[in-house]
Structure formats: structure tokens, C-alpha cells
Write a protein that binds this DNA or RNA. Structure first.
Lengths: 362, 362
DNA sequence: TTGTACGCGTTATCAG
DNA sequence: CTGATAACGCGTACAA
């Protein structure tokens, strides 16, 4: 029952019969101490179950050894994996992770950053609704707080770990176009509040233009439509001659399949679908999902590594975007109207799982 | 360019021409102050961009306003959602979340708890490999640190937010048995290191026994087999006359479907599958997955609420397990050998999505 | 080699 | 109503 709620270095010093400075030196191996007193201090510390107070240390040392991390939501496995990647990169560094989530709300974003800053985190790893417009974020940086972004494209001199959404989306358009699709749509949740979605649409649109194809339809879904296949089916039905859909994430892509089934439409023969993110589950579906495969964990790791370097005072440069893969799948085929002799889902050779895309910029 | 790295209450006081105590009282609304000085302090604080240091406060107040949370991995959406649930419950409480993950390693678990304790968190929310054997965890509690468990069944007087794995597994056995399945198996990852898996097997086994059915086969998969449908197919093939599989989580259940397809077996006609967790994606599959639906978010919320109450000094009691639902799906049917006239996947009426189970204890 | 004393930012106490 | 001061736990000059 030796349950003193807090045992401090003072207690250790008293128990060991020495000054607190000596105890500190011994326990930190940070200075001279006779073998004898060293022994006494160590046993005292062990007996009392002493451990340093990170708070005392932070106050005195000016560093909290804590990193703040803000993401929209951990319920989205992409962000959850990224945070796990951050953890992986931080493990062994001595830094702890303080997390916050905003539920995709821009005001909550700013509040969260302010809160994290008040906790005196030593650095910030952030995915938020609108970093380019967040005065709070810029102020934090101006105050000397290192900031590392995740998922965002480079902005305002912030360093970011990301995939090139624009190029990835062009790749999607290319895949559709090569198979003969002309009438396409881009499907997204929260289009207006996500720079990722906007950049994906921009790339998709640009590549369609470059090929003299009709502009893709832009469909922004609410949560309700996204989670209710019946509603989604209605929306799709109202769109007429569509043969291919680029879904801004894999969950949406799977929802599209479900909706198509409800409509009696066949994927991929009546409707081709390509997703985004490359979540593991897409591989395991009856009709493995064609998608752009990204590595959220790697994004988190890179963001954390960048931050660690910034905190060491190194001059850091923006790294090139992380690679994405186009993952072939059974949800992609030629449109039915273009060719009738070759529509048994032919474009998916099960042996080839993904093709690395070359990232020629521009 | 007013970029003093730290602006403290001292700076505010000097700027406002008053003592720091007065500044503190004004900024905290914690005592008397003349309207005039109040004004001066507030503008000074605003001008300087002052915000309180959580560290200084923690040191003086003895509370860090931080809660430590340990989970095996955020890459598992079940835990990620639970942590999000914790966040949800904590939002507005003033507490911040310090997270750690152990990657399912028991030693890392203990280390993480020690680290969180050193950060002087005000409470702990924990899912770990073996809480019942963790001296570190018990020591933390003995030191007066409130602890709230997630997912674990009640042990050692720890309060926990959980579903009754044993009863849920019995429900699965009942569903199989009612359809006429006799030869079943339980499929799990990390069986030996997860009390959840063990309890699920125990319940499954117990109910089979109670019905004079053969004991279910117990299959523990490595990561490799779980992620490689070909390997999983081999394992299933070697098991012979199996007609039904209870997978310890939905990902495994989906992997089983994939493997069955590879073997040319039909789900559910040759093999019925029931999963566990009830991840959203299961609903959207071609063959919606029959599963035990749990609510990880609710588990996180309950754990956090319990912890908040403990920290308020309230006497808390173990709450009853959170409810689980059996979610019907297209992966469950009578075994082929038992009845030949009724095997068009009949047991899944799409209108009825889930049936609430009654939680008679025992 | 050792111990005393100060400062980190905050709040609470207490005397003015 | 106000402000000086002690205390929280720690590291570290500096003095012994």
C-alpha cells in the first residue's frame, strides 16, 4: 500500500539522503556521482517507484516532447492509418502523440490547433479542411511551431506528405478513355470542403478536356445518399447515358456497385467504376475494385519524419509526392455500346494486380 | 513580426501595467478586478496573442487535463472507431487525448502505459493484450489513476466498456445450429493473445456442446494466410466436411468468401460464413455479410464517459455489456446436404436487417 | 563530488 | 480591489 500519489525527485533525494541535484544527475546520467551515492539513489528510486514527471521536465526544458496531430476523423480508415503511420515513425523518438479530430469542420479545425498549441506541442501534423485559409495555422507557424501537412497538396510554403491527386485523377481519366468511355462522372462527398476532392476532379476534368471528351458530370453526395444505396441508385438513374464513374474514395465506389446492382445494371458492363485510396478490402470483393492505390501509412510516416527533421532544426525541403498505383480490377471494362463481342469483363487479368504509374509532373 | 516565441502571463501583466495575479484573475474570471484594469489586461492579452500554457497550469493544478489512450493499432478500424468515440465523448470536456499503440505487443503495452503515466495523464482508456496480467496497469491504478477498459470483459475490478463476446458467440452457434449445420469451425487471428477471440471461441464451443453438436474446429491464422486467399483456401480445403465458419472478425469472413470462391465453393450453399464486428462495408458487398454487429464508437464513448465520471470522483459501477445485433446476410444458409429443395440463399430476407438479441446473462 | 538556489508558467493565499 | 509570494517538479548554474 505504498501509494503516495506522486513520488517526486525530492522524495528520492530524501530517501537516498542526498540533494535533489545529485539525484537528478544520477537518474539522468548527466553528471558526476560517487558509486556509493549512485547506488543509494537508484535503489531509492526503485523502492519508491519513481518516474520523472514529464510536466516538470517540459516546464523547465521548454520542450513538451509531444506532437499534436489533427485529422478530420479517425472513423475514416485512411486517416486512421495515416495516424498509425505517424505513430510508427515516432516510436522510439521519445515523442508522444496528442490527437484531435474536427469531424470535417473548419471551425473545429482552428480550435483544435489552438488547443494543441496551448498544450505546447513541439510540432504539428495536420490534415484539415482549409489549411490555406487557416490564420490559426499560420500563426502557429509564425510562433516557431514546426508544421507538417498530410494529404494536402503543397501550399504557402508548408511542407506536406501527399500523393499527387491531380495526376492520379488524370490516370483514371486515361484508363476510362483508353477503353472507349466518353460519358463519365466524378462522385464525391464534401466536394466543396475537400481540396483533395477538388484536385481529383480538376485532374479528371483536365484529362477529359485534353482528349476532347465531354466534361465529366460532377456529383456531390450528402451522407444520406452515400449510405443509402436506394437513394444513390435514384441519382445514378437520373444521369442517363453514363458509362463510367470515378468515385473519390473506395467506399463510394463500393456504394456505386451496390446501387448499380439495385438498378439491375451490371458492373462493369453497363457501368465501369474506379475508386480512390486503395483500401485493402477492395481486393477481397467478388469483383475486386479498380482503384488508385495510395499508402496512407506511408503518408503519415513521411509527415512525421519531416517533422522530426524540422524539430532538429534541419532545413527541410518539400519532398516529391508519394507514388500511387493504378490497381486493376473487375469493375472496369469497355462500355457495352462500343463493342459487343468483348464484354466478359476482359480487362482484368487476375495475375496483374497493379501497375506502377510514372509520375511525370505537369 | 511580433514573434516572441512564448508570451506568458507575465508579459501580459507588464503590458497591462499590473501584477500577474490580477492578470490571472481577469483572464480566468476568477476574482475581482476593476473594469479599468480588466480592460487593459484583456487588450494586452489580445495584442500579444496570449494563451495560457497548459503545462504551467498542469504543474500548478496537479491535473494535466489529458487522457491517455492505448489501443493495439489504429490500422484496425474497430479500434480507430473506438478512439473516435472516445474523442466524441471527450469533446467539450476540456480533456485532450494522448494516444499510444502497441501493435499487439504485450511488452509495448506496458511500456506505453508507463510512458502515459509519466506524462501524468488524468486517466487511462485502454485496450491491451493482457490487462489481467499487466503489473504496470495495476500499479497505475494503485497510484490513483482512473482506468477504463475497452473491449475487454470485466476483470480484476476494472471497469470496462464491452460487448459480451461469449453470448454473442453463442448466438452465432445458435444461428448455425438452427439451420442444421453440424460441422463448424472458428477462425481467428492471434487467438492466443486476444481475450476477445478466446471468449468468442468459448461461447461458440459452449453452445455447440449444449446442443450435442461436434466441437467446432479451431483455426488460428497467421497474417500471411489471412491476407493470401490462396493459402487460406488450402487450409479450408484440408478441413473436409465443414459447412459453416465463424470468423472472429469481418475481414477474416470476407477473406473466407474470397478463398471459397477460389476453391469453386459457393457461399452460402457449400459454406456458410458469419463474421464479427459489423463493419459498414459488409453491408455493401455483393453478398452482404452475416455478422455480429457491434458499435465500436459506442464502446469508446462509454469508456470515456465512465472515465469522466471516475475523474469526477463519482463511485462508478460496471455497466452492462453494450448490445450486439445479429445482422442477417447472404452468407448464411442451410447446408446443402441437409436440404436440397431450399437452397437458394433463402434465409436472408432483405427487408429485415438485424434482430436485436436479448442479453440474458449467464 | 555534492548541495543550494533559481527559473520555467501558472494559480492560490494572504497581506495591503 | 490589488499585488507580492509560495508552490508545483524539474534541470542546471554556481558555490562549496
Amino acid at each position: 500500500m505504498e501509494s503516495r500519489l506522486k513520488v517526486t525527485i525530492k522524495d528520492v533525494a530524501r530517501e537516498a539522503g542526498c540533494g535533489i541535484a545529485t539525484a537528478s544527475r544520477v537518474l539522468n546520467n548527466s553528471g558526476p556521482a560517487s558509486a556509493e551515492v549512485r547506488e543509494r539513489v537508484e535503489t531509492a528510486a526503485r523502492d519508491l517507484g519513481f518516474s520523472f514527471s514529464a510536466i516538470g521536465r517540459a516546464l523547465q526544458g521548454g520542450r513538451s516532447m509531444t506532437i499534436g496531430c489533427l485529422v478530420p476523423s479517425l472513423a475514416n480508415p485512411v486517416f486512421a492509418e495515416a495516424v498509425q503511420g505517424v505513430q510508427d515513425a515516432l516510436s522510439g523518438s521519445g515523442y508522444q502523440l496528442l490527437i484531435a479530430s474536427s469531424n470535417y469542420d473548419g471551425d473545429a479545425d482552428n480550435e483544435a490547433i489552438a488547443t494543441l498549441a496551448a498544450k505546447e506541442v513541439d510540432g504539428l501534423i495536420v490534415t484539415m479542411v482549409a489549411p490555406e485559409r487557416s490564420a490559426t495555422l499560420k500563426q502557429a507557424r509564425r510562433r516557431g511551431l514546426p508544421v507538417s501537412l498530410m494529404f494536402h497538396d503543397p501550399i504557402d510554403g508548408f511542407l506536406t506528405a501527399h500523393v499527387d491527386n491531380f495526376q492520379a485523377a488524370r490516370e483514371v481519366a486515361r484508363r476510362f478513355a483508353d477503353l472507349g468511355h466518353r460519358h463519365t462522372a466524378f462522385l464525391s462527398l464534401r466536394f466543396s470542403s475537400s481540396d483533395r476532392s477538388r484536385n481529383r476532379y480538376a485532374g479528371f476534368h483536365a484529362e477529359c478536356r485534353a482528349r476532347d471528351l465531354p466534361d465529366p458530370a460532377l456529383i456531390e453526395l450528402g451522407e444520406a445518399e452515400a449510405n443509402t444505396p436506394e437513394l444513390l441508385a435514384e441519382i445514378l438513374a437520373s444521369l442517363g447515358e453514363l458509362t463510367a464513374i470515378f468515385a473519390s474514395n473506395d467506399f463510394l465506389a463500393i456504394a456505386v456497385q451496390k446501387a448499380a446492382r439495385l438498378m439491375g445494371k451490371s458492373v462493369p458492363h453497363d457501368l465501369s467504376v474506379i475508386g480512390f485510396d486503395g483500401i485493402e478490402i477492395g481486393r477481397l470483393l467478388d469483383a475486386p475494385l479498380a482503384t488508385i492505390e495510395t499508402a496512407p501509412n506511408a503518408i503519415g510516416r513521411q509527415a512525421a519524419q519531416t517533422l522530426l527533421e524540422m524539430m532538429q532544426g534541419k532545413a527541410c525541403m518539400q519532398r516529391p509526392p508519394l507514388p500511387f498505383d493504378f490497381r486493376a480490377g473487375a469493375t472496369l471494362a469497355r462500355p457495352r455500346t462500343e463493342s459487343c463481342d468483348d464484354d466478359q469483363g476482359a480487362t482484368w487479368p487476375p495475375s496483374v494486380h497493379s501497375l506502377k504509374t510514372d509520375l511525370k509532373q505537369g
